[in-house]
Amino acid sequence: MLKKILYINFFLLFFPAFSLSYPFTGVYFQSRILGLPFLVLYFLLNIFNKKIIITKQIFIFLFPLKIAIIVPFLGLLANRKFSLIDIGYMTSFLYLILFTLVVKKEKVLFVKFTKIFTVANIVYSIWQVFLMNLGLAQFAMIHCNLPSKSDYTIPVGILPSIYRFSGLFNESSPLLFYLCSSYIFLCEINKNKLEKDVKIIQYATLFMIIISGSKLSFAFLSLLFISKLLSLIKDRGYRNLLNISLIAIGLFFLTTNYSEIIDILSQNLTAFKPRYESIHNSTTSLLQIEILGNGFLPSSTGEAGGLDAITIIIGGYGVLFGFTIILTFLVWILVETNFNFIFVAVYILGLVSNGSLLVSQYTLLFAMIYVLGKPSLYKISDFLKYTAKTSN
């Protein structure tokens, strides 16, 4: 029975863009949230049997949850607007805590899910490109019933006949966020390259990232290249020194050539300019945000004014509480990954391109990081041995 409860949650994660509630209630919320009661039941049954261990690392997630609960209710005494999105963040942060604890116990099952979900997105993306080339655009987004995307058509990519596929997500950017997370996760669990199926999925995932033509993919591939170079340096002291030097050189280059870089990117990447202007406007208007935030507006419809985390999280919860949430997750990633450069990079890229923490990609990224704790997960068989030991 317990496994079936967990399978329901994994099944619902296969619908990141399709709300099972919307056709029946007219209210759109992510299908995975339907699994929250099942997740709570699974957690309670296992915690009483002492099969789930609550580690001290997970308590840091309580800060975002408390902010998500306290700020909206305090805001009722001020001018802050309360919305269904506030409830969405409460349930999403609760879901995040329970999900990460559960998958830490069910490592093997989570790795299998990641492999299957990644392959499903790759296969479906290829199918989307095939449909678009046949002129059947109306069938390429049937997996998404988000009201704001009812007229959405997958745009053409930078390569001939390759469209900006979205996979099972609502746009290409969320898909790329997930594929980047999945790629580095699979690389970590297969460092010894002993799992052939994982290796094949790694290469397929990297190939899809390369041909996607997304801004996020260009940035990720550049940072991945730097990460690979840094990994060649075995001495931690020299590696950290090089890290600091690269950051310093990068900042110097960026500040001295800022205008030219913005102009070049604006001319060559069509979606860059509006995204840049949105982030620029949100940062310059920080002082105008109320102490408890201005409340949430839907980001999917464009009402929020931008898709970055500053616009959404800082605008929604205020400068103090918004930055606390963003930095809480950042510090947790730094500590949990032992300052792994590439995981931090994916998180920051996500904040810029998909700043709403409601999306399932963040839950999956944090779960991946949490699962990659000790013991070293170089082989799937290691999961089985570890699970057998801990269950006795």
Rank of each mutant, 00 (worst) to 15 (best):
1 M>K: 11
4 K>T: 12
8 I>S: 08
25 T>R: 03
31 S>P: 10
41 L>C: 07
56 K>R: 15
69 I>M: 05
70 I>W: 04
73 F>N: 05
86 D>E: 13
89 Y>K: 07
101 L>R: 02
110 F>S: 06
115 K>L: 12
116 I>A: 14
120 A>C: 03
122 I>G: 10
123 V>Q: 04
123 V>G: 09
125 S>Y: 10
125 S>W: 11
128 Q>V: 14
131 L>D: 13
137 A>R: 13
143 H>V: 05
145 N>P: 10
147 P>H: 14
148 S>Y: 13
153 T>I: 11
153 T>H: 01
158 I>C: 00
161 S>L: 12
162 I>T: 03
168 L>W: 14
169 F>S: 07
178 Y>N: 00
178 Y>V: 00
178 Y>L: 04
195 E>D: 15
196 K>F: 15
197 D>P: 08
197 D>F: 05
203 Y>R: 15
204 A>W: 02
206 L>M: 12
211 I>D: 01
217 S>D: 04
221 L>I: 14
225 F>M: 08
230 L>N: 14
233 I>C: 08
237 G>Q: 04
237 G>S: 06
242 L>H: 10
248 A>R: 03
251 L>A: 13
254 L>W: 13
257 N>T: 13
259 S>E: 09
260 E>D: 14
274 P>Y: 01
280 H>G: 00
280 H>C: 00
286 L>N: 06
288 Q>G: 12
293 G>I: 11
297 L>F: 11
312 I>D: 04
328 T>Y: 10
334 L>H: 06
334 L>R: 07
347 Y>N: 09
352 V>Q: 01
379 K>W: 01
384 L>A: 14
386 Y>M: 01
386 Y>F: 12
386 Y>Q: 02
388 A>P: 01
389 K>E: 04
389 K>M: 01
